[in-house]
């Protein structure tokens, strides 16, 4: 093969290279497989975000825990308030024990008889 023929082949491939270089996708695009699926990325790469989150929690965890302990949770506050709450009609349930004992009707007397006896005593 002559030098001329080799030169022709060289130019032939040079043209191919120029054509392909013009349309080559960007390096980052290929590296991150933007147009392709990510199934071929290994576990090492996949787990990086999870590891980062885990480390962040490890550092921030004690701080968050402390702040949660200092300020009671809203649910706890609500439970305390609920326990201390009194109904406005609670007094109706309280009565004087002594008057209750003395006020008991005796067996054999009617309500009206009892009422009369009490009114006389008072």
């Amino acid at each position: 093969m002559s030098k001329y023929d080799e030169r022709k082949i060289k130019v032939f491939f040079e043209q191919l290279r120029q054509e392909e270089e013009k349309t080559a996708p960007a390096f980052q695009q290929v590296l991150w497989g933007e147009k392709t699926s990510r199934r071929s990325i290994g576990w090492g790469f996949r787990l990086r975000p999870a590891v980062a989150v885990f480390l962040a929690l490890l550092v921030a965890g004690p701080v968050i825990y402390q702040s949660l302990r200092q300020a009671p949770a809203p649910e706890v506050e609500m439970a305390v308030e609920f326990e201390e709450w009194e109904s406005p009609t609670d007094f109706l349930l309280s009565f004087n024990d002594s008057s209750f004992d003395s006020g008991l009707p005796e067996i054999g007397t009617t309500f009206w008889e009892e009422y009369d006896i009490r009114s006389l005593e008072n």
């Binding site: 349309t23 392709t36 071929s40």
Partner: peptide
């Protein structure tokens, strides 16, 4: 094949980095 070439190159890059 461009699509195939991009996928092959992506896989090769990941292998190289790993």
């Amino acid at each position: 094949d461009r699509e195939e070439a991009a996928e092959v190159l992506h896989t090769a890059y990941v292998q190289v980095l790993e």
